[in-house]
């Protein structure tokens, strides 16, 4: 476990220097005008950043309203019979519902749960596993599709949410076994 952690830690430290060495180094080896080409590629950065603004604002607005309205409490109450079936603590429901919507929101819920129940309690353990194992699907949807101007996302949202649900339920079950 410790060696595994050490390997992974080093891998994440070395990743960026290695990529830069390989990519720029190979460019130099192939006699590419590296500086000029880099600048040409980097030019698009601004365009992409500006292009995603409307998509991100639309998505964040809906999520902010959802969070402020107290909908989360109602959904928690509605979903509790289902979660009781798999033995999930009702305190974890806001975490599960918030995770696909907002990165900072779910970070807050996770910290709150760990402060209340302790990071090594089953609830704290499950909440942090939930946070570590899934992504903020709505943010990814808005930013990724927004950057290329795709407005009709077809089945992307339901498929992404289904994957989230699978990950969250697995987190609950695996943490119960682990504990």
């Amino acid at each position: 476990m410790e060696t595994l952690r050490l390997i992974i830690d080093w891998a994440s430290v070395l990743a960026i220097p290695t990529i830069i060495l390989l990519f720029i180094g190979y460019g130099g080896y192939k006699k590419i005008p590296v500086y000029e080409v880099f600048v040409e590629g980097a030019k698009e950065g601004f365009e992409v950043g500006v292009k995603i603004i409307p998509y991100l604002v639309a998505m964040l607005m809906a999520i902010a309203m959802f969070r402020a309205s107290g909908m989360l409490d109602i959904l928690t109450w509605l979903a509790s019979p289902v979660t009781n079936l798999i033995g999930m603590a009702p305190e974890l429901l806001p975490m599960a519902l918030m995770r696909p919507l907002s990165g900072s929101g779910s970070l807050g819920v996770m910290s709150e749960l760990m402060k209340t129940f302790g990071p090594d309690s089953l609830i704290g353990f499950t909440a942090s596993t939930m946070f570590g194992s899934t992504e903020t699907t709505f943010y990814v949807l808005a930013v990724y599709f927004g950057s290329v101007g795709v407005r009709k996302t077809r089945y992307a949202a339901p498929a992404g949410l289904l994957a989230d649900a699978a990950g969250l339920i697995t987190a609950v079950l695996i943490c119960q076994l682990w504990f």
């Binding site: 830069i20 190979y26 080896y29 880099f38 040409e40 590629g41 030019k43 950065g45 992409v48």
Partner: peptide, 12 residues
Amino acid sequence: LGIMKVAEEAGF
């Protein structure tokens, strides 16, 4: 995007 452009042009 700059780094990726270099890698792309070089065929990496």
